[in-house]
Amino acid sequence: MGAAPELKGEARELVRQAVAIPSVSGEEGPVARFLVEWMMERGFRAHVDDAGNAVGERGHGPLTVMLLGHIDTVPGDIPVRVEGDVLHGRGSVDAKGSFCAFVAAVAALPETALAGARFICVGATEEEAPSSRGARHVMRQYSPALVLIGEPSGWEGLTLGYKGRLVVRVRVGKDNFHTAGEGTSAADDLAEAWFRVREWAAGTAGEGIFGTVQATIQHLSSGTDGLMQVAEGTFGLRLPPQLTPAQAEAELLDLLADLPATLTFGGHEVAVRHPRDNALTRALRVAIREQGGRPVFKVKTGTSDMNVVAERWPVPTVAYGPGDSALDHTPNEHLDLAEYDRAVRVLASALARLAGDHPA
């Protein structure tokens, strides 16, 4: 199934306009209203929900398919422009391009597909924030049979999993002393904490980077008021499936127990990896091949709303969307619109196939 010429133009204009509306996490209202209006004009039952999500539904069949993307972005003003077949702008890749591809594909579905399934498009809020407000709200409202997560995978890529996350905040406070004296400074103790965390992470090596803890420094500072020294650091950990945030937390508390440091933890996300072979992956693989592509399975070292909803929605799940994820959050974020067109066609074909596999 291919997108009609008029849909191609509408789909491109949809993503261009969506990207042109700023929507840093917590400020998604204007773009959510725009998306709801676009969907309503094309026959969706659409509204902005209590979490600020843009929600649109089409179809009335027995199979419920959730298409969960996010419409917030990280900060950064990139002038929105189309040069040839390339759309530049914050959110073009991460991840308004993916959500607009979802919406455009569902808008293109024929009545026969709508009789076989109910398609729910959710443009979620605050995915780029620790709260994941939109996904946490919507996962309590629905019980889908299949889930698509809107994240850039490349139009031939199917992302099956994301690593987990833990954020460690370390604070060392101690009486000030002359640097000619004996002992360690608060900054010395903080540095020692980081060296131990880094060595611990390296010792967790598993199968490739997806099976290993990745540790990075997100923040370091130290200072004194003349009486007290204070050093603070924030370490970000990306966790493999075999290590939960709770397990990592316990190991780090033990590892740093002899240091005069206070540890606090946040950003807990459990790693997730879904199976390769199910109705959803099969439909997408067939659709990718129809467009001349070669399906590629992927796992990602970051996190997404897939991590958030996995426990409550233990069903076939894939992250899919156009764009190069290496451009996420960068000053050069841009989307190839020809690839976006292919992703829309892939999605429309796969969704129609799924609806046909579950006739009313």
Rank of each mutant, 00 (worst) to 15 (best):
D77S: 14
L160E: 03
A51I: 07
R282Y: 02
V55L: 10
R33G: 07
L256A: 10
W313R: 01
T184P: 10
T234M: 03
D225K: 07
K300M: 09
S131M: 00
M139E: 15
R81V: 14
S143Q: 12
F44S: 08
L280A: 09
G164T: 05
G84S: 07
F210Y: 14
M40I: 10
G123Q: 04
V24E: 15
M228K: 15
R16E: 12
D50S: 12
A11M: 09
V230R: 14
A46Y: 14
L347M: 09
W155Y: 07
A338E: 13
G211P: 00
A193C: 12
A250T: 12
L237S: 06
S98T: 10
D305L: 02
S25F: 14
A250I: 06
V55I: 11
T112E: 15
L114Y: 04
E151F: 05
T262M: 11
G293K: 14
Y340E: 01
Y142F: 14
Q229S: 13
R81M: 09
G9H: 11
G154Q: 01
L253E: 15
L237K: 03
N176E: 12
T281S: 14
F102Y: 14
G211I: 00
L146C: 06
T64G: 07
E6N: 02
G292P: 12
R81A: 14
T244N: 08
D336P: 01
I149L: 02
I288D: 13
E126I: 00
V103L: 15
A20V: 09
A202R: 03
E207S: 12
P275T: 03
W194T: 08
G302Y: 08
D328S: 02
A343N: 09
I217F: 10
W38I: 06
P30T: 02
P316N: 02
R345P: 03
N176V: 08
D50A: 15
E249A: 02
G293W: 15
K96R: 07
D258F: 05
H178V: 01
A4M: 10
G154D: 00
D336C: 05
S131I: 01
T204E: 04
N307Y: 08
P62K: 05
E290F: 07
P316E: 04
R42P: 11
H274A: 08
G134S: 09
R289A: 05
H70N: 06
A129F: 14
P275I: 03
S325K: 04
A343V: 06
P130K: 00
